[in-house]
Nucleic acid binder design. Structure first.
Lengths: 249, 249
DNA sequence: GAGTGGTCTAGACCACCCA
DNA sequence: GGGTGGTCTAGACCACTCA
């Protein structure tokens, strides 16, 4: 029979039938999702983990390989294995998908326009998998380069998880939102689902992007998922002059 | 000093300083890229490979893990390790990115309109990294669902590599193009770079999509890369009614 | 030089597929 | 039942980092 990892409190005594390295991986993942292990922290050494969990080093390595591949952990030869911190540079490099038509990368700064707590629209409710009476925080912001507004965004997050999110309208946003999510609310964005379509610019959009009402613009809808694959943000980005990039494999 | 793998003909006797598993991985990759190993074939067993290469099974596994993660190989417990065949279903699932606005997947059939051999445009030449006098094959096709044309495509491939590509205008295309590339020309698509932007529909596009000239439509430009990361296709897809999907991580 | 991750080995046992 | 991949071990040696 397959062994199971020692747990601090073993709720059930059912014999675990999953491979040890998966159990170890999920245990690490859980500790990261729950904040026991924080971004920036180093894991115990492989040797230490192996003796702690009562498994061999090879199995520890296999457990961490997955998380390294997913970008959650990062190995540093001679130093240790770190939970990847969500720095602004990293978040930009990883999740930012806009570029100029000529291929040069856009360097956008953000400016928050409004911040409201309200009931979600039908789509927002569905995209965030919210319950009947859940509220959302809605942010609107513009993103500019050289004083030219290139993107208008409406960002929607569940109030329950993001109550501690502290940002104020009217100020420039120096850090990436995803970094703030992590630092202020302990929510890490692991993956995203983007949809790109043509949209007739709503009033707020045409005003900020300085185009005629009714102009057809590019709309990117994004669901951001947490470590536990729950949707934690629904974002809509409208742009007229930028293109959207995507690399597969 | 680090060992090196035995090679049938060792061009240089320089001592190989890369890890054995990387040498083994690249050796397999090369054999697949060169057609020595064909999609659908099974690799020798891990045991066999290990003794052939004079390395241990663990190292063989590590060599193949990369290729499995990239979708080039597929392990089948109890049967063997197969070079993934590019079936139509697989190609559709992997590279197809269009959906209806309501989220339902579009089931498109293709119909080739024209096939021409000509000099590439400046952009095509650059995107395909072509030399001065290289020619390209240009395909135009429409993709429809229930007799409604939803996408117009202009597809451009280097004539040198795709001379054996045999498809004729006017016929429905039952197989995915990428499957034909593989079967007829031995070229496998491994990865893609997509760019999505708004475009003013060119004449051919507005005619086929049945919209006014000058309508703003969605344009997806795609570069497809081979196993060896060379660009082998540049494709432009125009659509009015579909949205583009992208999953990150 | 002590401690970390990176590579590699040789072998055990299991789970699965197929004849 | 023979062959395949899947998991796991225990240990060797190397390469890198940092004090």
């Amino acid at each position: 029979m397959r062994r199971s990892l020692p747990e601090p409190v073993q709720a059930q005594t059912t014999l675990e039938s999953r491979p040890l390295y998966l159990q170890a991986r999920d245990s690490l993942m859980r500790q990261i999702a729950e904040g026991v292990l924080q971004p920036g922290d180093f894991l115990p050494s492989e040797q230490q983990l192996a003796t702690d969990l009562g498994i061999s080093i090879g199995t520890v390595r296999k457990a961490t390989e997955d998380l390294v591949a997913q970008g959650i952990l990062e190995r540093q030869h001679g130093r240790g294995t770190q939970i990847v911190p969500h720095t602004s540079d990293r978040a930009r490099f990883r999740f930012f998908r806009f570029a100029h038509p000529d291929g040069t990368t856009a360097r956008l700064t953000g400016r928050l326009l409004t911040r409201k707590i309200q009931s979600p629209s039908k789509e927002e409710q569905q995209r965030l998998a919210l319950g009947k009476n859940d509220q959302v925080i809605v942010l609107s912001r513009i993103r500019s380069e050289d004083q030219v507004t290139l993107v208008y965004e409406r960002i929607c997050v569940p109030e329950k998880k993001f109550a501690r999110l502290s940002i104020e309208p009217g100020r420039d946003m120096l850090e990436e939102l995803y970094v703030l999510y992590q630092k202020q609310c302990g929510e890490m964005v692991r993956s995203t689902i983007d949809e790109v379509q043509i949209d007739v610019a709503p009033a707020a959009v045409s005003k900020e992007l300085q185009c005629d009402a009714g102009t057809r613009v590019l709309l990117v809808k994004r669901q951001a998922l947490s470590l536990t694959k729950e949707p934690i943000e629904f974002r809509q980005s409208w742009t007229l002059k930028l293109k959207y990039m995507s690399y597969l494999e």
